[in-house]
Amino acid sequence: MSVTTEQLADVATLARLKLAPEHSQSLTHAFNEILSLVDQLQALELESVKPMAHPRDENQRLRQDLVTESNAREAFQAIAPDAQEGLYVVPPVIE
């Protein structure tokens, strides 16, 4: 498979990235080279193979329902780009 620059721009939008116009050609080329590297997987017959999401076959451990965290807003918001009145500030969210 391969993608066009336009298709790649859609993927970029999904990832909230913008392709620089001067690089979009070369990036599309590089992207398609990577696709050609991974494309061989599509030819494999793997119908009966169980997908593997984790490197080891273990179960999720469960945490006891305890409140262990205390308020650390000051420390967290000290490193925020914009926090006011205890809130993280962003351009208006329109619903």
């Binding site: 945490r63 329902d65 305890l66 409140v67 262990t68 965290e69 308020n71 650390a72 807003r73 967290f76 918001q77 009145e85 205890g86 809130l87 993280y88």
Partner: peptide, 24 residues
């Protein structure tokens, strides 16, 4: 109706000051 959040130890209590129950 849990005491703490599903993936962290922060309280789920309603009505707290903004972001005071938001852990790392």
């Amino acid at each position: 109706a849990t005491e703490s959040k599903i993936f962290s130890g922060s309280s789920t209590r309603f009505g707290a000051e903004p972001n005071t129950q938001a852990s790392a």
